[in-house]
Design a protein around this nucleic acid. Structure first.
Lengths: 234, 234
DNA sequence: TTCGCACGCTGCACACCGTTCAGTGAAGGT
DNA sequence: ACCTTCACTGAACGGTGTGCAGCGTGCGAA
């Protein structure tokens, strides 16, 4: 009698997979992304290192899975912070998103390094997979913020280059055109710029370049985001 | 007779040190920052790994030295690009600086990762040293760009927080007040924001987050820098 | 010129790491 | 009851950074 209930084997397998990921995250938060060693995980679980290869074909695949999980969690946190601000305050929603991402990054720099840095020596993110999906979701969230500001922001855009949908990733374009019909390609370019602007100071701070120079990076960041909001005409 | 000429020992030592650094840079450009292994360097030089400990107390010290060298070289490249634009075109000088940094980063992403990312598992940049010196020089260069724009930019700044010199690193403050007397602390905060703004999109691109989404990151970056210049009132 | 010593270097050791693979034993389905 | 599947072990291979005893050469001083 199979099919109805999940087989015992499959359930145990799922539990073990979850335990591996949980321990990997614990080790990462304790010692940084490079503390994710198969041997350390196995040691913690009372297994040998080779056993993990029944669950992940290689360490990089484990890392890829972790990136997907972590990325999804931060996007959900940002979305929640955004939704806590009324929709008729697009500037406030942008600020909420930005502050949520920075707060998350500072609370656990390892996660930020995992997603936006070199998580592990020699690791290269795969073109697709859970990480890419989460990134698309993040972009969609940012596009929503830009879309709300677009009526005010459009007249202020004086780009020398005219963008077309062909300039962007088809998957992203499909997402955007479905969720925000009527939004022009130029707004997508603006979205990427907004992303970069939110990212820059946080990246510098997480990697230790900002804190030695200024005592209150939060204030600088807030000023920057306020300037960003103003530059959108809000 | 010592003192006049450098002793033979010291000269050989300097040559070997230079060779270690040169090979480390070569390996890095070939296989990324994590290819900087003492064993690989020694192999390339026909030595054993332990020998390098006569020149650098640990691998992290070698990396620190490399960071200093690479950081200095990119700052000099940016300064040269800036100086190729007449001083009465502050916006052009900002654009030149930004484009030079981006071009350098794309030409050798390993250098960018070395300075602004996790160069090596577990590496943490020391509080002082050649890297910090180069970073101060970079900040001074950026401050010069902001200082030139300050007359136009100051009226556009509406920060809610008022900055004082105490908010910043004393060394940086000393540098700035010596080179740009009369510049207020708020301009220093603006400098850091400009830094972050130049950094964000490049960091995303180098770590592979931007290129899959847009075919012409250069155009997006240029638009962003032009918007930055406009936000300074130029 | 000769002697002594400093120092660059070797070779080995240790403790880690990711990855592979033959073998084992228990659980599953038939 | 049988047989297959599969998670797991334990050993191995090649890689890494890092210490340390010892050796020989060449420098500098007597």
């Amino acid at each position: 009698m199979t099919g109805e209930i999940i087989s015992r084997r499959a359930r145990l397998r799922a539990e073990t997979t979850a335990e591996i990921k949980a321990i990997a995250l614990k080790l990462m938060s304790a010692g940084g992304p490079d503390a994710i060693s198969l041997r350390a995980i196995a040691r913690e679980m009372g297994m040998t290192a080779g056993a993990i290869y029944s669950y992940f074909p290689t360490r990089d695949d484990l890392v890829t899975t972790l990136i997907g999980d972590v990325y999804t969690s931060v996007v959900e946190a940002a979305e929640a912070a955004r939704d806590a601000v009324p929709a008729d305050d697009p500037g406030g929603r942008i600020l909420a998103w930005a502050e949520a991402v920075r707060a998350w990054a500072l609370a656990g720099p390892e996660g930020f390094r995992l997603i936006y840095g070199d998580p592990v020596p020699g690791y290269r993110p795969p073109a697709d997979g859970p990480g890419k999906a989460a990134e698309l979701r993040a972009c969609t969230g940012l596009t929503g913020l830009v879309a709300a500001a677009w009526p005010a922001a459009e007249p202020l855009q004086r780009t020398e280059r005219t963008y077309t949908w062909d300039d962007f990733d088809p998957g992203l374009v499909a997402h955007v055109r479905e969720h925000f019909p009527g939004l022009p390609p130029a707004a997508l370019a603006l979205t990427l710029r907004v992303w970069g602007r939110m990212h820059g100071l946080v990246a510098l701070e997480i990697y230790g370049h900002l804190s030695p120079l200024v005592h209150d990076p939060a204030a600088v960041y807030r000023d920057e985001i306020r300037d960003l909001i103003a530059s959108l005409g809000l």
